[in-house]
Amino acid sequence: MFAFTVRRILQAIVVMLVISFIGFAIKHNFGDPVRELVGERVTPEERAQIRERLGLNDPFLVQYSRFLVDALHGDLGRSFFFKRPVTEVILSKAPATLELVFCASLIVILLSVPAGIHAAIYPRRLLSRFIMGSSIVGVSIPVFLTAIMLIYIFSVELGWLPSFGRGETVLLFGFWESGLLTKDGLLHLIMPSVALSSIMLPLFIRLVRSEMMEVLESEYVKFAWAKGLQPRRVWYVHAFKNTLLPVITVGGVQLGIMVAFTILTETVFQWQGMGSMFIESVSRADTALMVSYIVVVGAIFVVVNTMVDLIYGLVNPTVRVAGRQ
């Protein structure tokens, strides 16, 4: 286990280095730190002076190592548009995205587990067929289209729900702007989180169902039936417990992938989170902000995946051996 952990962490570090290298290469080639610092109205001579002082004429690798050291100290540069350090900008936008992902995962978990179990236990029932049928339709609808249709039905036609923004927010602990505590904020949350969860829901239902069906075929479940246990006990205590492990590990990775879909959902609903910030930074050519979003989200992914792998290795020893060859 120790060797596995070390190898997995080393791999994570290498991946982070690669991501930061790509990020730096973009910044180095397309970004203009002088513009980020002083704006456009500076004479070429002053510009050259600033370039020299900032060390922008140093060799590439020297600059890259400086970028790495700064990044480790939490300094990823300044945003040209916001006139603030990018880490500050990203931290101020993060709560909105995290709350959205949290609510969406809540919906996914609460709906997919019962639906998946039902479809696995009674595969021939009408409701199960309906669940599986709608899940393949669900996979085929792009997330932004779901969002647009929700807006059209519930905001434009019915006028029940607000169509954009986060509504009223409350400041928690001095930095966390939460929309979870006000009625207005919660109303604004409903459609974005439903839209975001719609993309993961079909995948999770299929996952829970197929794992559950596999477990129901296994020897120990047959033995439990043979002992004459109550059906409920066999399903929920014996079988369900063992479907949880793959669901949690695959689910962990999938929930990380939701971060990618927040880019789309947030753009539709003008949700002031990291995703819409990223798209805006691309269209404003705010290179520093764009690169740091890539680095930060890359880091989130690497950490989540490493943790999931380690947990999986802890529970399932064959993974640890297979990697070694």
């Binding site: 990775v253 992938i257 990618a260 890539i294 989200v297 890359g298 995946n305």
Partner: peptide, 13 residues
């Protein structure tokens, strides 16, 4: 391990 969407969006950006 990254989502393909995300990679596509990043490369596009």
């Amino acid at each position: 391990s990254f989502s393909t969407y995300m990679i596509a969006i990043f490369i596009g950006a």
